[in-house]
Design a protein around this nucleic acid. Structure first.
Lengths: 209, 209, 209, 209
DNA sequence: AGATAACCGAGACGGTACGTCCCGTCTTTTT
DNA sequence: AAAAAGACGGGACGTACCGTCTCGGTTATCT
C-alpha cells in the first residue's frame, strides 16, 4: 500500500572517503561559522564532493551533523576508554558525593563553548524535527541517562535509595533541572546549583534515617 | 563615537491595523504550515502588508512570532481572568496535592497540539537565538515560575518545606524534569509521571517529620 | 607525438542486442518527449543498458539519434524497395509534372508530424554541431539531392533543360525554398507553393524578351 | 477558463540598468564561448544581476539572446542610417545586376564568423522552439525579405518581371537556396553560387521553346 | 579446459546548471 | 512619514544530467 520508496542507493558501494570528508567538513564549518550559517552547499564544497552525494545519503543538514557528531564521539570513545563521558558514574559508596561530582562535570561541559555550540543546535533542531530528535535522544542522550539508572540501582541495593523508587524516573530529578536551565538559559549553570539540586532531590528519594 | 542609529521609526505614527493583521497572519501561518515554513514574505502577503512594514518594526521572524504569541496570551488573559495559567497555584494547605494538580495541568497543556506547535518552535528558536530566548524566558516562562516561588514560600511559612530551601532553585525539581521531557521527547509525559516527580521531589525538600 | 588514442573498443565484441535496444529507446523517447528532453541517462534506462555502453560507442546524444534514424530508414528501405524516397524521381518526359509530383510529396512529408519532429531536431543540432551536420547531409540529404541531379541531367539530354546549366546548382532552386520555409517556418508549406516554385524556377521569372 | 497567469511583473518599474547589463553580458558571453556554453547563471553573474531578474523578464536563454540581438541591430540602425542591411535593394534598372549585388553581400555576411555564430545558434533554437522561431522570423527575417518584394514589384512595373508572378513567392527562389546552403552547410557559399542562382532563377532553367 | 580479457548492467561519484524560494534593501506611489 | 507594492542583488535550495569511474557478472576468444 505504501508507495515505492524513491530508489534506495546501494550502500555497499558507498565511498568511505567521501563520508569522512563530509563529516570533517561539516564539523569544521559548524565550529567556524555556527550551525545556522552552515549550508549543505558549503559542506559539499569544503569536502570536495558533489551535493548529490550528500542528498543521496542524508535527508537533511541536521542529519548530516548528527551523524558527524556521533562519529566524532564514537571515534573518541575508541581511542581512550572514556571518550565523552560514556564511561561510568563513580560508585564510592557516597551517593551524594558521586552525584555532585557527575553533575558538576556536566555543568562544566554544558558551559564549554566547544560543546554548547553544536549540541545546542542539534538539540534545537531535534525539538522541531521529531525524527531527528528521536535519534538524538536514542544515540546520545539515553546512553548517558542509563548510567544514572545503573548507579541508582546500585544505591538501592546498598539501601541508600528506597526500594520503591523507579530509577528511570528518579534520575530526571537530577538531570531535568540542569537540562532545562541549559536549554532555556533561565539562570546560570553553576556548581552550586548542581550541588543544590543533588541535595534537594536526594533527600526526596533517600531512605528515611 | 557610536555610529548613528539606523533611523529609528516614529512609533507614534505606527499603523495599529497593520500590526494586528501581521499578528493574525503570523499565527495562522504557523498553525497551518509550521514555523519553519512560515516566511516573512508569506506573512506580509497574508496580512496584506508590505514587507518593509515588518522589517521596520521587527528584527526577525522569531521576534514577530514571539510578539504575536505574547499578544495572544495577553488577550486571553484580559478576557477571562486566567488566560494561560497566569493566575495562581492553589493553596489548599496540602502542598503535594496542589503541586500534583498543577503539574498534571501542565502535562495536559504540553501534550495539546495547539500549544505544543508554536511554543515548541519558539522555544527551539530561542535556544539558538539568545536574544529571543531571553525574551521568551522573561515574558513567558519566568512569570509562571514565580507562581511556584510564591507557593513554596507559603509552604515554608506553614512549615511544609524546610526553611533552608531556596524556592527558586527548588521549583526546578518539579518543572525541570517536565520541561526536559517535553522538549527532548525522551519519554511520554503522563499524569503518573507528574505525580511521581512531585512525590520524589517533595520528600526531598519537605520537613522531616 | 600524438597522445595515445583513448583505447578504442573492440567492435567485434559489441553487443548487437544493446545497440538495437538503444536505437529503439532513443527513437521512442524523442517521439514521446522531444529531442531536447531526451537524455542519455533516459535512453540508457529505457534500453536497460549501462550508460557507459552508450558513451563507449557514441560521442553524443545527437550521434546516437542520427544513427538510430539512419538505421530506421535503412530498415524501411530494405522492406519495400522504396523506404523514404530513396528510389527515383519519375521520368515521364514531362519535367514540370515530374518535379511537381516530387515536391508535393516532399511538402507532405515535411508537414507530417512523424517526420517533422525528429528530423527537425537533428537538423537543428546539425546546424550548430558541424560534424553531426556533415553526417546528416552526407547520409540523409545528399543522396536525395542526387536524385534531382540525375533527373535534371536526363532533362538536359532530352533538351528540356539548357545544356549550360549545372544540375547540382539548379536543383537548389527547387529544394532550397522548400527547405528554408520548412526550417524557418516563414510561411506555410502547401502544394500550391510547391507548384509555384516549380513553375517559376523552371520557366524563369523574367519576362521573355 | 484559463488558469490565472503567474503574476505578471510590473514592467513600468523595470530596471533599465539591469536590462542593458544583461544584453551586454549575454552578447559578450556568446561571442566568447558560443551559444551552447552560455548559461543563464553565467549571464547573471557577468551582468552583476540576480538570476531571478532574468527569469522575471524572459522565459528562456534563447529569448534573452534574441532580444539582445534585436537591441543590437536596432542600436546600429539608429546610429548610421543603415544598420544591418535594413536599407534597400538598389534599383539601377538592371535587375540581374542588382540581385547579384545583394546576394553576394548576403553570402559575405553569412560567411563572416561574427554574424554566423550567434545567428546560427538563434536560428537553430528557433527551429525547435516555435515561439522563438516566430519572433526570429518576424523581427529579423521578414523585414529583409520585404525588401525583395519591393524590388520585384518595381521590376514588374518596368516589365522586367512577368505580371503574373507573386513577388513574395518568387523572392524565395533567390533567398531559399542561399539560406538552405548556409543552414545545412551542404556546399560552400560563394559569389559564383550567388550569381548562378540569380541567373538560373531570373531567366529560367528550361530551354526556350 | 582454464585463463584472461573485453563488454556489459548498474549506479556512485565530482561537477555544473537548472529554475525556485526567500532574504533584506531599495524605490515608487498612495494615503 | 508611514504604508502597500514589489523589483532588485544575492544565496541556498533540491533536482536533473553530465561524463567518468569502479564494481561484479557474463561471454568469447586465446592459450
Amino acid at each position: 500500500m505504501t508507495q515505492p520508496p524513491p530508489k534506495a542507493p546501494d550502500s555497499t558501494r558507498r565511498s568511505e572517503r567521501s563520508r569522512r570528508a563530509i563529516y570533517d567538513a561539516a564539523l569544521a564549518l559548524v565550529a567556524e561559522t555556527g550551525y545556522a550559517k552552515t549550508t549543505i552547499e558549503g559542506i559539499a564544497a569544503r569536502a570536495g564532493v558533489g551535493k548529490q552525494t550528500i542528498y543521496r545519503w542524508w535527508p537533511s543538514k541536521a542529519a548530516v551533523l548528527l551523524e558527524a557528531y556521533l562519529d566524532l564521539t564514537a571515534q573518541a570513545a575508541d581511542v581512550g576508554d572514556d571518550g565523552g563521558g560514556e564511561s561510568e558514574i563513580p560508585d564510592t559508596g557516597d551517593l551524594e558525593a558521586d552525584l555532585k561530582l557527575v553533575l558538576r562535570a556536566t555543568v562544566d561541559e554544558l558551559n564549554s563553548p566547544a560543546y554548547d555550540g553544536p549540541t545546542r543546535a542539534l538539540a534545537a533542531e531535534g525539538m522541531v524535527n521529531a525524527e531527528l530528535g528521536a535519534q538524538f535522544v536514542e544515540k546520545l542522550l539515553e546512553p548517558q541517562l542509563q548510567l544514572y539508572v545503573k548507579r541508582l540501582r546500585s544505591a538501592q541495593e546498598t539501601g541508600d535509595v528506597r526500594p520503591g523508587i523507579d530509577p528511570r524516573t528518579a534520575l530526571e530529578l537530577f538531570t531535568g533541572p540542569l537540562t532545562a536551565r541549559w536549554l532555556l538559559r533561565t539562570l546560570p549553570l553553576t556548581h552550586e546549583y548542581a550541588d543544590a539540586i543533588v541535595e534537594y532531590a536526594l533527600h526526596g528519594i533517600a531512605a528515611r534515617r
